[in-house]
Design a protein around this nucleic acid. Structure first.
Lengths: 190, 190
DNA sequence: ACTTTAGATCAACATTTGTTGATGTAAATA
DNA sequence: TATTTACATCAACAAATGTTGATCTAAAGT
């Protein structure tokens, strides 16, 4: 099922969706990029929404699995936080167009799927929150509101997908990772 | 020209655009909200894009003017940075749906207008960058990459519009402002 | 040799969407 | 009183958009 052409179809689709938005990308746009007829696309997915659907929940799962592994590990709160930002930076560098879906295009999921997505997102935000809360409790971090702190930390990295997707920018992801960690850790640190 | 009905039209339009995206919001959606006919909307704007256009460049100007005033003031780099985050938080609290346009909907501007918007955005990002660069130079801030630092600082607040637009969340903007400043200043501080 | 499979083609469709023109009305303004 | 102003209504259209069905081809698997 994962043929070259099919992979190319998803790749081009996600790039277009990143740049033009989900609603702003038509099946005809995608077909033009692939130099084929529109009808052809329905050999790969049974509807436009399936492009979003499949790609979004796939990257979402990958991210959640990573978070879970970190949460269950035996690190200090600060150590866990470092690993979380590391995970986020790496995943974003690897798959900027997929992350773009998590940031922007999730709004266009069907009602049911959107509800599912939001529930999952809330769940992992709470996991990160608990790490920060623990950090505050053991005196490793300063007493900011954990919800607010979580939003700041995650949001502080949310520009990366745009930058990595851009041809012109060529950040070294390891260096980015280091500086983000420095910012976040001393931003929350006592 | 700024009648009640006209103001209501823009208000409802921006709320819909925030929740459904620009392309996802139809003129008929807006008309339904206003309980009037579609054709009626063209008494207020001459095209759909004008809704985006007018609202986006209006909030953009407001923000840029604020930034400029801060840049020209006689504060230390850290002082200026505090004022910048303060400005951002206040403006976002006042006008979350307008800020939403700056974050998301600008992509759907016409080619010409988009170019103009991006040029302006780059210009003010560079202004913030120079503040941070200055902070590094005088030893007030740690030596992170100024581009990266700027992105992190601005991005760290980019979740706020979503939160302020949401009925359920009721952050106290002054407290939010304080905590964001604490995070950002100690995140960049030496 | 037979059949499945991945992909391509072409014509056609029902809806959705932005937009227009012609017209009406009630209140404010002159 | 005459007229401008703000807003409303109705019918209609051209273009864009997601989707389908029927058919074809060439390669891969059996």
């Amino acid at each position: 099922m994962a043929t070259d052409r099919r992979l190319q179809f998803f790749e081009e689709s996600l790039q277009l969706i990143h740049h033009q938005g989900y609603k702003g990308t038509t099946m005809r746009d995608i077909a033009t990029k692939l130099k084929c007829d529109v009808a052809n696309l329905y050999n790969f997915v049974k509807s436009k929404e399936e492009i979003l659907d499949i790609s979004l929940f796939s990257i979402n799962e990958e991210f959640h699995d990573g978070i879970d592994a970190i949460i269950e590990s035996k690190h200090t709160p600060v150590g866990k936080l470092r690993l979380i930002t590391q995970l986020y930076v790496r995943l974003t560098h690897e798959k900027p167009y997929e992350i773009s879906l998590l940031v922007n295009s999730w709004r266009h999921l069907s009602h049911k799927k959107k509800k599912k997505f939001l529930a999952e997102r809330t769940a992992y935000e709470q996991k990160v929150q608990r790490v920060i809360q623990e950090g505050v409790d053991v005196g490793e971090m300063k007493a900011l509101d954990p919800v607010l702190a979580t939003n700041m930390v995650l949001s502080a990295m949310r520009w990366l997908f745009d930058s990595f997707a851009d041809q012109k920018s060529d950040w070294n992801p390891v260096e980015v990772e280091r500086q983000i960690n420095e910012f976040v850790v001393s931003g929350l640190g006592v």
